[in-house]
């Protein structure tokens, strides 16, 4: 009976000890960066550390400005993040651990619901829209050259 108890104690200690070592080794080791596709541009709109710490605040702030005030600047727009960070027509979708957003979000276990509504990869623009925007750009450019006689100044549409 005593031997059995001692064996039980030893087993419990062994399990607890190995658990402690495993957990501490995980926390002490470097967290490996997820393996995601290379972004398009030279650099992000803000330093990486700043983005890691507060990208959600920037996106949250921007979404209210876009939604309620029609401010469609590019820097903190979710659409533009996706345009840069996710390759067009990629087969890697949100939910895969290779998608730019879900790679970290899965690892950190932070649920986001952005992509229940938003496109998780760029490029899905219907033909009708492409044609309309191309025609609009031509018209606006024509209007600019007609009025000023100089090169067209940048407008929101052509940026």
């Amino acid at each position: 009976m005593l031997q059995l108890q001692q064996l039980m104690h030893k087993t419990i200690l062994a399990i607890l000890g190995s658990a402690f070592l495993t957990l501490s080794s995980v926390t002490l080791a470097d967290i490996s960066m997820p393996d995601v596709a290379k972004p398009k541009g030279e650099k992000c709109v803000a330093p990486t550390d700043e983005m890691r710490a507060s990208h959600f605040e920037k996106i949250l702030h921007q979404r209210d400005k876009t939604m309620h005030q029609g401010i469609r600047t590019k820097p903190h727009s979710l659409k533009e993040c996706i345009n840069c960070h996710v390759p067009e027509n990629t087969t890697v979708r949100f939910g895969d651990d290779k998608h730019f957003c879900s790679a970290c979000h899965i690892q950190t276990a932070v649920n986001i619901d952005c992509f229940q509504c938003h496109a998780d990869r760029p490029g899905n623009i219907p033909e009708i829209h492409k044609k309309a925007m191309a025609a609009l750009e031509t018209n606006l450019k024509a209007e600019d050259t007609a009025t000023t006689g100089t090169e067209p100044s940048a407008t929101g549409a052509t940026q």
Partner: peptide, 12 residues
Amino acid sequence: SQVAQAKPADQA
């Protein structure tokens, strides 16, 4: 199809 003036992106 072009009756509207383009609003600058940063303007509310």
